[in-house]
Design a protein around this nucleic acid. Structure first.
Lengths: 216, 216
DNA sequence: GAAATAATACGACAGTTGCCCTATCTATGA
DNA sequence: TCATAGATAGGGCAACTGTCGTATTATTTC
């Protein structure tokens, strides 16, 4: 079985990199490449005998989200896997809404990319674990999708996120300390730092802000 | 680094199969196994120094969904990966809502299971592609998700709802009293009654329960 | 290898919270 | 009309929370 693939990316260098990654696999055939959505659409009009499109998101003229929507509208049989450098919630959610069948990051290694294509053809969704986690959070907390207009940079450390997670369950300093095997003092310090980063002054505010930013 | 794992499954044969699959990997330690959720909870009370729980769904006494919710409530630091034979939408969605960090099928091979555990520990979500696709669909079509959260009837008075609304903004007793032109004592009494009705013991829990029941 | 960041930990203090008690004054309905 | 529920209000206490300090030990990054 031959896998007919197209690549859409405005960066020729990255197109080349993807091609190279797939060159290891004999059953993958790159049918064509495009530099943006509208170029792809033109090509599809001539030939839409394709299995999968690997689609970048950030592109001029017609971006990956819009393109996905249009391709899926016209050619629902073609699978579309987003292959992008960015994994922010908005992109992920919009891509899914547009009908993407998978979402991978460009840093992916050849084997995983190939497996992703296979899985997609077998009726699954290709997704790297960090993306998968984001979709889970989006499902758990659908409100976070809308409120992301005000997206300031918030960077909590791994430990801080853990503490925040526990906070969100309504646990007290002492219980959190037990759970994470920490001194209560440390937990309190973490919370102090979390408050400063989120610019809040109570558990509830912290939890709400974190949820709106899809941190927890 | 050693991975501390627990297995919960009502089928001893399947527990054995999972153990065998993980036996190939030296850095995985099966800390304990349980035949149902309540057995697990008992074990956790003695020792909750665990990384991941592999959880079946269909179990007597306390099923995997309920157990996941309870474990996550008490020990948010423990990752929970569903490992079940069934992959219907309802199970998947409920598991995610309950706080599952991943969802795998029992037919999984040893390598993938091990990778799933690793990914989970690295802050990703373990998920096989067919499950991933279902989560995408759920995200695309949130209406397909039925609101089964409100089983019990909760009747708060109008005033109690007002107080709860203020609570949800993270306001303190004193500020709420000012806002509603009440004595702080009264506000506290209202909150006390709200807690009793909702069967919770903190602001955050009250707000979360209220939200799950569409009260606020 | 120095600087920056993260994680760890303790002490102190005012204020808040969770939980127990009692009590009065409406409404509303059985 | 009397019971019941709701809204109001207060006292007291232990524990928790929010906000200051300070300080040591990895880990990362330049």
């Amino acid at each position: 079985m031959n896998l007919k693939v197209a690549i859409v990316d405005d960066n020729t260098f990255l197109i080349h990199a993807i091609k190279e990654k797939l060159s290891f696999f004999e059953d993958v055939a790159i049918k064509h490449t495009s530099l943006n959505g509208s170029e792809l659409l033109t090509q599809l009009e001539n030939n839409h005998n394709l299995d999968v499109i690997l689609m970048d998101i950030e592109m001029p003229v017609l971006d990956g989200i819009e393109t996905t929507q249009m391709v899926k509208q016209k050619y629902p049989h073609i699978k579309i896997v987003m292959l992008t450098a960015f994994d922010n919630d908005e992109n992920i959610f919009n891509a899914i809404k547009a009908g993407a069948d998978g979402y991978l990051l460009k840093e992916i290694n050849p084997e995983d990319l190939y497996n992703g294509l296979q899985e997609t053809m077998n009726g699954g969704a290709a997704m790297n674990p960090s993306i998968a986690l984001k979709t889970l959070k989006l499902l758990r907390n659908p409100d976070s999708i809308k409120n992301q207009a005000d997206k300031e940079e918030i960077s909590l450390s791994k430990r801080e996120v853990e503490v925040l997670e526990q906070l969100s369950k309504g646990l007290s300093y002492t219980v959190i300390a037990e759970n994470l095997i920490l001194s209560p003092s440390t937990v309190r310090k973490h919370i102090e730092n979390i408050y400063k980063k989120l610019q809040v002054h109570s558990k509830i505010e912290a939890v709400q802000k974190a949820k709106n930013h899809n941190i927890i």
